[in-house]
Amino acid sequence: MNGRSLTMQAAAALTGLMLSVMGADAAEVKVVTSVALTNALDELAPVFEQKTGNKLTISYDLAAVQKKRILDGERADVIILTRAMMDDLASQNKLAPGNIVNVAGTPVSLAVRAGASKPDISTPEAFRQTLLSAKSIAYADPAKGGLSGVVASRAIDRLGIAEQMKPKTTLVPGAQSPDLVAKGEVELGIAQASEIVPNQGVQLVGPLPGELGSLTQFSGGIAADPASASASKALIDFLAGQEAASRFKAKGFEPGG
């Protein structure tokens, strides 16, 4: 056997050894998070998996639903919910000791169908007139804990037009209002900007104006009893890093915060 063959054999053996070590060290990280992060995390997950060899299993649902599941004892490795929810989970010993890391924020915003003229929502009064002039609107059912729906309902109440809006409002269970706008089933949709931007059939008008608006800050932390603390920390560090920040921004989020 010549020297070249021996070198190739040695390289192959080394590669096999490295792969086996990576396989032995690889961990499955269970992530529990809000449906509002779906588009960003679905894109970021394979990047993280390729970099680390770890596998992500991500559970999406309304933030309030996910928080209840954790409080009821559901197991997770990494939890990413609103900052207030994470602080509450920490106070109830559902998170490992350490800092909660702000990952990304998204403002509650208005959407119209792609190609439609953007209505004026520059001031609360302009937004009020836009809502009154609209034939139909959709947002998440606040009774189900949808964050954007809670903000939308509160804004409409503060504008004093709850009764006028009721007959032309469609409540959806989660992040579906941009889809209804895209299909032409409703004229306006209120949702997180992160739920609007990735939808090709709609366009972002902008955040709800002034004090009517709300920025939802999503923060991540390691659960109290993770299967792999190191893999969980690696994910938190990755989501708070520069590469993730650029992808979050492209999906309608404000990175970090």
Rank of each mutant, 00 (worst) to 15 (best):
L14M: 03
K51Y: 11
S91H: 05
S91I: 04
I70G: 00
D87L: 11
G73T: 12
G16S: 09
A64W: 08
L17P: 08
L44A: 04
V112M: 09
G53I: 09
G98Y: 07
N93P: 10
G98K: 13
M18E: 03
T106G: 14
A116R: 10
D25G: 14
T130E: 03
T82L: 04
A24D: 03
G16P: 00
M86W: 04
T106S: 15
L56V: 03
A111L: 05
Q66M: 15
M8W: 09
I80H: 02
V21Y: 08
E43P: 11
A126V: 12
A27N: 03
L14F: 13
M22L: 15
R75V: 06
R113N: 11
A13R: 10
F48C: 00
G115K: 02
T38I: 10
V35R: 00
M22G: 13
A96F: 12
A143I: 08
F127A: 05
L19E: 05
Y139W: 04
R75A: 14
T33C: 14
R4Y: 15
I80R: 00
N39V: 12
L131M: 13
S109G: 06
A40S: 02
M86R: 07
A10Q: 15
G73E: 04
N39K: 07
G73V: 11
D61C: 10
A126K: 07
G53D: 04
R128E: 00
N54D: 12
N102L: 09
V31R: 06
P97F: 05
Q9G: 09
S117W: 11
S5G: 10
A111D: 01
Y60S: 04
D25S: 14
A143H: 07
L44W: 07
I70F: 03
A126Q: 03
V112N: 05
V47E: 01
M8Q: 08
D141L: 06
P142V: 15
I121C: 02
E74S: 05
G105E: 00
Q66A: 06
E74A: 10
D42T: 08
D141I: 07
F127Q: 05
A36G: 06
V35L: 06
V112G: 08
S59Y: 04
A40W: 00
T82F: 10
A84I: 05
A90R: 15
L37C: 01
G145T: 02
E49N: 05
Y139G: 12
